[in-house]
Design a protein around this nucleic acid. Structure first.
Lengths: 248, 248
DNA sequence: CGTGCCCTTGAAGGATTTCAACAATCGTGG
DNA sequence: CCACGATTGTTGAAATCCTTCAAGGGCACG
């Protein structure tokens, strides 16, 4: 399922120069190189870690898309967030205790591996990077807040539009979107349902309704938002200018 | 509404020695003292900051309980989390850009004030504290995940039980709970509804149902969970041992 | 003693879920 | 290469959870 790949040097990190990501300078790249333990490639459907496991690693997404979810023991599950290139995985688990969520690969991914054990040292010795990590944690929190608003206040239709817009937006910022507000991504309707807190059937119906209205064209394998502004307006989505995010 | 109070020295910080909080050592206390700008007392109903404001400060809750929420322009609002003594307020706003949520006082509070501007310096010069801040950010994220599961997967009854258990648990850890899994706190049913994504009417009915079943006794002004274990079980709530949290 | 906020309850309507069945797609092994 | 099972998408109909509308009572505050 997963194999360790040859490690690319940080200086050639594919994330450098992405539209929504901040560049690291020479000096920072060298620091990172010290902490990088290797890379890992996982195919769609593979798990980075399971709920309840205390993995020894932290990861950065170099390539691909992943989902993070929590399960209740009776089978219900909630997808908590999507992870795109540049996102940090496993920060919560970095502080002892097993993580309470699982991470699964949605689009074949390549991850950069760091050791959990070196994390405190890492923070201590590189203030700028410690600052960046806090930045990322704060942003992640902001994202979860947005999802929370969605689940708590929006109707099914609004949730679907919101998610579409949010995904396309994030994809564009990480440079993996297609032309014309399009995103090619194999998300299952079951997964969408588990993200939005809706039943599979209702998710399907709502998608078809939106399709016929032309607001969001969510066909299997591809999301397209013809009129971004109209969609944002409908879903009461206010995307912030969102300056470049740091990474690694 | 709010007034600046005489600043208590950090060495006499009331948070030292709380059941769920980690002690700071002499050295750390001195550092903190340098960054502390003062204190602020706000009464129930008062605002720490509004949605869209870019406040110049960061706060730590010394006393009281607060809520954090986001509003949609059409009036719907979602309470995103509760803040208890030891919690950090405004971390998201610490990285440029106005905060996208508002913070309101639920129980008369006293806050410790820090300058946003000294934040980068702060992280840089005190690795241990930088680590703690990241810890807090990660925990906050974990909490939001739990709420997300609630809104996405649980029924109205389960949500209410979950919230009750969660609140009582947090109150106990911050040492402001009453005897016998009791918490005296003036939460409005409208606020509960806005937290759980339910209508006011349905929130009320569900509360009454739980009351008659004896699972959760949520009377105006007080929450009581007679059988914690039964309640956790019913709501599929798994509270982790949760080691002591750092603060400040 | 009003006015406003909060809690409470009934009844009707609507959004969403569940149950059920079938078509379409895909990967895999014979 | 085709047949097969497994997964995914689609649709109808009935049941239910939850919301909205409406109205009244209690309590605090000026």
């Amino acid at each position: 399922m997963n194999r360790h790949a040859q490690s690319i040097p940080c200086k050639k990190c594919p994330l450098q120069g992405r539209p929504g990501l901040r560049e690291l300078d020479e000096c920072q790249l060298e620091y990172m190189q010290d902490f990088k333990r290797g890379e890992m490639a996982i195919a769609r459907g593979g798990m980075v870690f399971e709920q309840g496991q205390a993995g020894p690693h932290l990861y950065t997404v170099l390539e691909g898309v992943l989902i993070r979810y929590r399960s209740l023991d009776d089978g219900r599950r909630q997808i908590v967030n999507f992870m795109f290139p540049g996102d940090l995985i496993g920060l919560q688990g970095a502080f002892d205790g097993p993580s309470n969520h699982a991470v699964e690969v949605l689009v074949d991914s390549r991850l950069c591996i760091f050791d959990r054990s070196t994390f405190p040292e890492f923070i201590g010795s590189h203030p700028r990077l410690a600052y960046d990590i806090t930045w990322l944690a704060a942003k992640e929190e902001t994202q979860l807040e947005e999802h929370l608003v969605s689940l708590g206040q929006r109707t099914a239709k609004e949730r679907l539009v919101y998610l579409a817009v949010w995904l396309v937006d994030r994809a564009q910022k990480s440079g993996i979107a297609g032309k014309g507000n399009t995103l090619t991504i194999p998300i299952t309707q079951t997964q969408v349902a588990d993200m939005l807190g809706l039943s599979l059937v209702h998710t399907n119906r709502t998608m078809r309704a939106l399709l016929s209205e032309g607001l969001v064209e969510w066909t299997p394998g591809e999301i397209c938002v013809p009129d971004m502004e109209a969609a944002c307006d409908f879903a009461k989505f206010t995307h912030e200018p969102d300056e470049k995010r740091p990474f690694l």
